[in-house]
């Protein structure tokens, strides 16, 4: 009697274990058909980004893992840079009150008459997109935001992606982690 009950319990245990193995195998097997070798990372599509400013505030990191990068290929090297100067700047000088960037992260360097080079100091950049907005509205749009993958924690779900009003952030395979604006003639 005792023995019988024991055997029965053993049997139930075994069959339950087997069905769990099968269930796991089923889920695992199906998921296996949908695996990639690559990891996934988060990427901003600069053509969709509307410079809303949430990249600065909504990253789990402070300062944000999103930084402005400069596609020099697109830049007009303008003296009057829409991304560097406030629209109401009183003179085209590097004086702080003229700069759009709240952290003075953009360096303006004279190259040759009348061209200036603009370099972003990523250690200072907080990803606020103010310069991007300026450059996109008044210039060539060579400033744009990207998630910097040496900083980004690659959250399972990017907390900016969730709130981005333009759906500009999505998962991409890690071998094409960046979408840097290219030359307009090749339209990439």
């Amino acid at each position: 009697m005792e023995k019988k009950a024991e055997n029965r319990r053993e049997f139930i245990q075994k069959s339950a274990r087997l069905s769990l193995v099968l269930a796991l195998g089923g889920v695992g097997g199906f998921a296996l058909t949908k695996t990639t070798k690559d990891e996934w990372v988060w990427q901003i599509d600069p053509f969709k980004c509307t410079q809303c400013g949430r990249c600065e505030s909504d990253c789990v990191l402070a300062p944000s893992a999103v930084k402005c990068i400069h596609a020099y290929d697109l830049c007009g090297y303008c003296d009057l840079c829409g991304g560097y100067f406030k629209p109401d700047a009183n003179e085209l000088s590097t004086a702080g009150e003229n700069q759009l960037c709240p952290t003075a992260a953009i360096e303006r360097k004279f190259i040759e008459e009348p061209y200036f080079e603009y370099i972003i100091n990523e250690d200072l950049c907080i990803g606020c997109a103010k310069c991007v907005e300026g450059c996109t509205s008044f210039g060539n749009g060579s400033f744009h935001l990207q998630i910097m993958h040496n900083i980004c924690l690659n959250c399972n779900e990017c907390s900016i992606a969730r709130v981005c009003p333009s759906d500009a952030i999505s998962r991409v395979k890690s071998n094409e982690a960046y979408k840097v604006k290219g030359d307009f003639t090749t339209n990439t």
Partner: peptide, 10 residues
């Protein structure tokens, strides 16, 4: 050219 540091590798 703009710098794009690679993510942690797979």
């Amino acid at each position: 050219s703009p710098e794009t540091p690679e993510p942690r590798t797979a």
